[in-house]
Write a protein that binds this DNA or RNA. Sequence first.
DNA 1: AATCGCGCCTGACGGC
DNA 2: TGCCGTCAGGCGCGAT
Length: 272
Amino acid sequence: MPELPEVEVTRQGIEPFVSGYRIDKIICRQKTLRWPIPYRKLQNQLQGQFVQSIQRRGKYLLFEVESGFFILHLGMSGFLRVLPEFVEPSKHDHVDWLFNSGRVLRFNDTRRFGALLWLGKEPFSHKLLSHLGMEPLDTNFNGQYLLNKSIKKKTPIKNYLMDQKIVVGVGNIYANEALFKANVHPLRAASNLSLKEYQILVKQIKNILKKAIQQGGTTLKDFSNADGKPGYFSQSLKIYGKAGSSCPTCKSPIQIIRVGQRSTYFCNHCQH
DNA sequence: AATCGCGCCTGACGGC
DNA sequence: TGCCGTCAGGCGCGAT
């Protein structure tokens, strides 16, 4: 499940094979992901164009060509890989970009919650990107910012952290982990946390995301091979997916509840 | 305005 | 064996 670290690891992994190369062809085998893929428009805009850069904003990847930007969201189950040459696609291999190097960038997304769209020259004014909150690894993202935005917010702190209008890139796994590390109970009202608590939370969020990126994300992809394998960060998870086992700090059993239709793991003894 | 919960989608898994 | 329900969950959107 791609959150910020997985998307960033993807960006870093594909960049050397994509940036600076010419797209000779795009092939879509699937009409619709989360929304219809604008195949015709992509064909017209991308073919023969050199990729200038690949950026990340939140969980979106932005590919810049001379005539504008197209964006890719990995959704829940999406991943990219780079093939040394074209080979027959497998199940759920929906989109290929063929490069002048002979390499192929291939998008696979079992559940099709992902998105591929053409945004033109002003991608950040598009409604999908314009409302996005702060980048968590930006130095401006701090406890004071989270405190200011939380005034009158009765929503549970866990939902607040996962709200992309507040801060981008934090999904279910990393929200669980950060709250555990900061000793904050996931059901606390966002407006109820002190500046001190928000400062600690921010520190933990940055720390966890950085570490996860360094370790290749929770689900690591080998970008020049067909196979995905578990990322090293999955070994560093303290609380996510560990209902019933004992808290690494106090040994009391880890609880699981539903918060906003999401599985939420916490230690009743350590998190207040 | 803020907040809640639905639906999209496939596959794995458990119970009967 | 097969069938059904649940879960995985990001996120826009409609309802409240």
